[in-house]
Write a protein that binds this DNA or RNA. Structure first.
Lengths: 232, 232
DNA sequence: ACTGCAACCATTCGAGAATTGGTTGCGCCA
DNA sequence: TGGCGCAACCAATTCTCGAATGGTTGCAGT
């Protein structure tokens, strides 16, 4: 992170402008978002040239009292966290980190599903697991598997967690996944996920929250182990 | 959910158009996103009037074979999940659900922080906890508390979970929170969070992943209990 | 009274202009 | 000749307006 010094460093002579600017910030009625007038206007308002004003703004920015962005403007206060550029997020992540995120989220979803799921949602879950078993190809299996996990998230009846999982899935689809499975083969009949899913559905159906969460945690841990190659 | 019947119900006489449309869907080369020509074009292509075509489209939409949106177009396949309208999400959520989401996310973050945190990050955590203790008002306390939790998320070194937590926090800021605390008072010296935070920092500093996750879980559980009013 | 049709409506997208913070190069003054 | 300010220019963002598109309504014809 080399801090390219493109503008002249602040000199001592400009402190007058800085205090003038601080005075303006204290006096002026800023809009809700803390945006202050564009540099060209503000310079004229304060009776200074733009270059001079920019030096003071640079100081305040380094102090963290305001932040600026090209095309947007200058704002007082801390820079708001940028949320969710999925493409960028996918680039900076790897499949293992995605699994960690799933392990963080989905057990809690299973727990809530055990508490809140309706009878119809539980029935759908059982059907989806059966469909996983009957899948003729890996691709088809994965489609049903995705719907299985999504159904649990819906059954949790927590819109926030549901939205977070959907975001996570969007990232998941975007990260370059390790080895694609051969598309012509079908999952083996003793694939661990079948039993895993079974346990989870049972726990939810019997309203055993802790068991549902634990089942989901173990299931995802199994998936992660395969992903790492611990049991390929 | 009353299904306002704005258009005429499908009659039996239109099955001809429906099969014609199905034939087109099978034969035509659709673009990657499954979008098919606008209704006006498609009607002319099939030699049908728009009204008639729309009746068939309505049938297929009800069957889930395609979805339509004003200004966008008509697409084959299931409707993609809309992700993350934070304002809308905040409306459909309540503080309790936010807490549930935090309980799902943050213990895992604490666990990963215990594994991945750098010495500097751990030191910052300790400083933030001290700042919480020294806060002169509830408002100041909450600012440091937020930074404390954010710092743990950063120390986890998992960009996905970090982004999810930031999203969650955006929702948290947007939901109408219960009773605001009196802004002139300061948190009592024996506020449970101080000890909670202490335990979490210790666990992370000693690289005890399970203890860190458990500490965070208990901490948030305490917060939720206060929120409900179980121990006000 | 029912049906079909064309005009109209609300929403979305896209191209291009306008805005705004960031940078460069020319010229003025010492 | 060197340092400094100024205006023009650059790139990122937002604004604006028109076209496109699915949804609705009112009118005419039978």
């Amino acid at each position: 992170m080399l801090d390219r010094q493109v503008e002249a460093p602040p000199s001592l002579a400009m402190s007058g402008v800085l205090t003038q600017l601080s005075g303006y910030l204290a006096a002026a009625a800023l809009p809700e978002d803390g945006r202050l007038p564009p540099e060209r206007e503000l310079a004229e308002l304060l009776g200074v040239k733009r270059t001079e004003l920019r030096r003071s703004l640079a100081v305040l920015e380094r102090e963290g009292q305001l932040w600026r962005q090209v095309g947007k403007g200058t704002f007082v206060g801390p820079r708001p966290p940028q949320l969710l550029d999925i493409a960028d997020l996918a680039e900076r992540s790897n499949p293992l980190q995605v699994m960690r995120a799933r392990i963080g989220l989905e057990p809690e979803l299973a727990r809530l599903a055990a508490i809140n799921a309706t009878a119809m949602e539980i029935a759908t879950l059982a059907e989806l697991n059966a469909a996983c078993r009957a899948a003729a190809t890996w691709r088809e299996y994965e489609a049903y598997d995705a719907r299985f996990h999504h159904q649990i998230a819906e059954a949790a009846h927590n819109p926030i967690l549901l939205a977070l999982l959907e975001t996570l899935n969007a990232v998941r689809r975007a990260v370059t996944w390790g080895r694609p499975r051969p598309s012509h083969l079908r999952p083996p009949a003793d694939h661990h996920s079948f039993a895993d899913h079974e346990r989870i559905v049972d726990a939810i159906a019997h309203r055993e929250a802790a068991a549902a969460a634990d089942g989901m945690r173990r299931h995802l841990q199994n998936v992660e182990d395969r992903l790492i190659g611990r049991q390929p």
